[in-house]
Simulated scan of single mutants.
Amino acid sequence: MPETWDYTLQIPNDPRAVTVARRTLRLILTMHGLTGLVDMAELLATELVSNAVRHTKGPAALRVRHSPEGMVWIGAWDTDPVPPDPPRPLEQVAEAEDGRGLGLVKACADLWGWQPSARFGDRGKYVWCELAAA
């Protein structure tokens, strides 16, 4: 049975937090021997955390879990309970600076979604994705 673990990094509403979250994720995956997932996981986490920081005014968090089934779950929590806009197809936003984040997540992750959450005492949501670690 694969090792299970769960990390949460609380981050301020600051664009620099995206880099901190990405580098922390790289360290977590490397320390757990999942270097093959690092590049894709960093891309997905960057999109999720960027959305959380850019589109809300409160704090945010990055959560990374490894499940007994061998999946790596990456989620970004923010204080806005409103569901994210549906992802647009990448061909519609290929050169755009905005609007491609969830399209990338949908295209690259094995599974993605969102759920309401009252974590950390604030109403909000998690937008998450999964990658197969095996």
Rank of each mutant, 00 (worst) to 15 (best):
M1I: 04
M1E: 00
P2N: 07
T4M: 11
T4G: 14
W5Q: 12
W5T: 10
D6E: 11
D6Y: 11
Q10R: 13
A17K: 01
V18M: 05
V18S: 00
T19F: 08
A21F: 06
R22T: 12
L27H: 09
L27G: 11
L27D: 15
L27E: 12
L29V: 05
L29Y: 03
T30M: 06
T30G: 11
M31K: 10
M31H: 07
G33D: 04
L34G: 00
L34F: 11
T35A: 15
T35Y: 09
L37S: 08
D39R: 07
M40H: 07
A41L: 05
E42Y: 04
E42D: 13
L43Y: 07
L43K: 03
A45K: 06
E47F: 00
L48T: 08
L48D: 04
N51T: 03
R54D: 15
H55N: 06
G58R: 10
A60Q: 04
A61P: 13
V64Y: 04
V64I: 06
R65S: 09
R65E: 12
S67H: 07
E69V: 09
G70F: 08
G70H: 09
G70R: 01
G70V: 04
M71I: 01
V72W: 06
I74N: 01
A76F: 02
W77K: 02
W77C: 12
D78S: 12
D78G: 14
D78I: 11
T79E: 15
T79F: 15
P81D: 11
V82P: 09
V82H: 14
V82M: 10
P83Q: 07
D85S: 05
P87Q: 04
P87A: 09
L90A: 00
E91Y: 05
E91R: 03
Q92R: 00
Q92I: 01
A94Y: 07
A96Q: 04
A96K: 08
E97F: 03
D98L: 14
R100E: 12
G101H: 01
G101L: 05
G101T: 02
G101R: 00
V105E: 00
K106T: 05
A107E: 08
C108P: 02
A109V: 07
A109E: 03
L111Q: 14
L111D: 15
Q115L: 07
P116A: 14
S117Y: 04
A118I: 13
A118P: 11
R119K: 10
F120R: 13
F120E: 12
R123Q: 15
G124T: 03
K125Y: 12
K125F: 13
V127G: 03
C129V: 00
L131H: 03
L131Q: 02
A134Y: 02
A134V: 02
A134H: 02
A134K: 02
